[in-house]
């Protein structure tokens, strides 16, 4: 299994209604890698994930997931979207949300209404791993932003994936929880490939093997380059890219 390629993008370009977001992206992520995706807001990080998942189709180029079309491979992926797009009044408990990760399993139970004992156990285990088991019966809406993110990571894990895609899992958590999260991810990395979108490269650089910098184009910095001067180079790159972005769209920098 190791040394096979999980994700492959060849010459991929994508535009939202005529505005180019990604151009000529080439990217190859092998099995059991731990990858960090960085870049400015609006640089195309989330778009990259959605292309990998087949939620968006590239205008040009080809995306392969586990060697096939994304739609076929996506059941093997655990995806954690950004937390902010949920209706805060929707009546669901934490367990309800995590159990969604068990959809799409075969058999009658998967086809119809009822989750099996194994599904409930997987949900409990995933919540326990992220330290959210005490909140299992609470309304999802009553949680803090950071807690909701941990629940969404638990839901992604509940899929029992071969590939974990996390979109900004540390956007609203303090550094203690962030450190704990990356320890968990490194542990999980023995069993699965992990791709994490983050804004905080300096902090995660001690854990990641490879950083993928996304800002309309994609540049990959390998593990060995991620020390000393190279990190400074990377930061330099980042700062320049951020300014470039700011220049293009006024106010696009507010959230950072």
């Amino acid at each position: 299994m190791p040394n096979t390629t999980d994700i492959e993008l060849r010459g991929v370009s994508f535009a939202y209604e005529g505005v180019p977001v990604l151009e000529d992206v080439n990217l190859s992520i092998r099995s059991r890698e731990l990858i960090c995706v960085v870049g400015p807001n609006g640089g195309g990080k989330t778009t990259l994930l959605k292309l990998i998942l087949g939620l968006l189709r590239p205008d040009r180029g080809e995306v392969r997931l586990f060697g096939g079309p994304p739609r076929r491979g996506r059941l093997r992926v655990g995806y954690m979207p950004q937390y902010g797009r949920y209706d805060p009044q929707f009546p669901v408990t934490v367990t309800d949300v995590v159990l969604l990760g068990r959809l799409g399993r075969g058999g009658l139970a998967g086809r119809f209404a009822f989750y099996r004992a194994a599904d409930r156990k997987a949900a409990r285990d995933a919540l326990a791993l992220l330290g959210m088991d005490a909140a299992a019966r609470r309304p999802f809406a009553a949680l803090s932003a950071g807690q909701r993110q941990r629940v969404l990571i638990a839901r992604a894990l509940c899929c029992q994936p071969d590939l974990l895609l996390l979109d900004e899992p540390t956007a609203n958590v303090d550094t203690v929880i962030e450190a704990r999260l990356f320890e968990i991810l490194r542990e999980l990395n023995r069993r699965m490939t992990i791709v994490v979108v983050t804004h905080d490269l300096g902090f995660v650089s001690q854990w990641v093997q490879t950083a993928v910098c996304v800002n309309r184009t994609v540049v990959v910095h390998p593990t060995s380059a991620l020390d000393g001067n190279a990190i400074r180079d990377l930061y330099g790159d980042e700062v320049r890219m951020v300014r470039h972005h700011d220049f293009l769209s006024k106010g696009g920098h507010d959230d950072e």
Binding site: L53, L55, L75, P81, D96, V97, L100, G104, F112, F114
Partner: peptide, 23 residues
């Protein structure tokens, strides 16, 4: 509503995630 409750809940709450789970 009873037979399809899980899927209808999934589609109502998070359509994108439901799609990724093959719904």
């Amino acid at each position: 509503a009873v037979l399809l409750h899980n899927k209808l809940l999934a589609v109502c709450f998070d359509q994108e995630f439901a799609e990724l789970r093959g719904v």
